[in-house]
Simulated assay, not measured.
Amino acid sequence: MALSAPLRRLLVTVCAPTLLATAITSAHADPAPAEPAPGTPEPATAPTGAAPGERDGTDVDELKLSNAWVPRSQQLRFGAEPLDYVTDAATRAAGSATCSITANEATAMVIAMTWPEVSPSGAPPSPMTLSRYDTQPSLGDPQNRAPGLWFHPGIGMWQLDSAGLGTDFTAAEAMDTKYAAERMAPFIVDKYCARRADGAGRAAARAHAWTDWVACREGACENTYQRALDGVVTDDSVGRYGGAEPRRCWYRGAAHDCMFVDPAAAQGSDWWAAPGGGRSPVAAPFYVIRLDGVRTTELRYWLTLDSGAAGDVEVVRPFGANARGGLTWRQGPGMCDMTAWRGDC
């Protein structure tokens, strides 16, 4: 894909053995307060293994905040293809903004929360990321037919949650960096401009734009924003869907676009994909289908060959419903993955 001029200014590309960095600069950029806010500890090393989710008894928000800071010794990395889509969406959002913001500033602002939220090591945030902090029993199969029958409510590098920004996304849409960026970029830029219109300074307006992300509450996202303005390292191994695979599926007498999600195939930061990587179980490989009708519904479907259950299992969540109380689990009627020719074909 040919790179646009704004994107070329954003990227830092690795050309062995030399690191070539092109800084993002702007007349409107604030002086970089690259240090954590006073009194806020920054981790000396990146969290590894099960660190973010295993400390039972600790408040979830506290866990996120304590793991939000990317150590200064770690470069910020981002998937090359996802960054293309984010840059395109942020450039359009900046072009139609009601306040002064450059495309580069908008791009950095849209990706700033992804590292504190899902990759505090600085590794490329995975578009496939599944939340591992939520342990409500209602998120699991009430019949306990297999350990991997689990509904993760927060999805993707922006952790779009069914209780908030992700309530009208399927998991597949939240993992699709093109689709998600096209919705997140104008949302974030509009929030920024609304606060600027109220008289707030640029840093305060950015903080307001990030209020939907817990990990941003104590300054970690301002830190990554300022660092992203100086450039990020792109990673060609992280694709648009982060390892999830678009397929075609036959379900209830009709063909549907579907997404196959196997946590073991995650691209980018994948600490969350390990069984011990968080508080909740990690889902067995599953399919996602959007069912449009009187009320749009997200379907997640487990073939018996993936989950180990005695039969197929499905769970549905109507758009607008919080998964923590809005799921319906039932026996699957049979589904065929027509792309890979697996399942009930």
Rank of each mutant, 00 (worst) to 15 (best):
R248D: 03
C258I: 06
V288Q: 00
A264Q: 10
Y301M: 04
W272K: 13
A273Y: 10
I289H: 05
G268R: 08
W271H: 15
F286K: 08
W302N: 09
S280Y: 03
R247A: 02
P281N: 08
R247C: 00
F260A: 02
P246L: 11
R247W: 03
R247T: 07
G293R: 13
D270C: 13
Y287K: 06
P263Y: 07
A265W: 00
D262I: 01
L299M: 03
V288S: 13
P281Y: 06
C249K: 00
C258L: 10
P281L: 10
Y287D: 01
G278K: 09
G253M: 01
V282Y: 03
S280T: 09
V294I: 12
V288H: 02
A266K: 10
W272P: 14
V282E: 08
M259N: 04
A265K: 15
P281C: 08
P285L: 05
A255V: 09
F286N: 08
G293P: 02
V288M: 03
I289F: 04
G276A: 15
F260C: 01
Q267M: 14
Q267D: 13
P275A: 13
A264F: 08
S280V: 07
A283Y: 04
G278P: 07
G276R: 14
G293M: 11
Y287L: 14
F286G: 07
G253P: 01
R252T: 06
Y287I: 06
P263R: 05
V282Q: 12
P281G: 09
V282M: 09
A266D: 12
W250N: 01
C249F: 00
R290T: 10
D270G: 11
V261S: 02
T296Y: 14
G278H: 11
V282D: 07
T297G: 03
A273M: 11
R290A: 10
Q267L: 11
C258E: 05
A266M: 10
E298L: 04
P246N: 03
R279L: 13
G253Q: 00
P285K: 04
A273G: 11
W302T: 09
M259H: 04
A283M: 08
V282A: 06
L299P: 10
V288D: 13
Y287P: 01
R252M: 04
A254V: 11
A265E: 13
G278N: 09
V282K: 11
H256D: 03
D270F: 15
C258S: 12
G293V: 09
A265M: 14
V294F: 12
G278L: 06
P246R: 13
T297W: 01
G253T: 04
A284I: 00
P246D: 03
I289M: 06
D262L: 02
T296S: 15
P275F: 15
S269G: 11
E298A: 06
C249Y: 00
R252F: 00
W250M: 00
T297Y: 04
C258F: 10
R295H: 12
R295V: 14
W250Q: 03
D262S: 03
D262G: 02
W272G: 15
A283D: 07
T297C: 04
A254R: 12
Q267F: 13
W272Q: 09
P281I: 06
F286E: 00
G293S: 11
H256Y: 15
M259Y: 05
A266P: 04
D257L: 07
A284L: 01
D257Q: 13
A283L: 10
L299W: 04
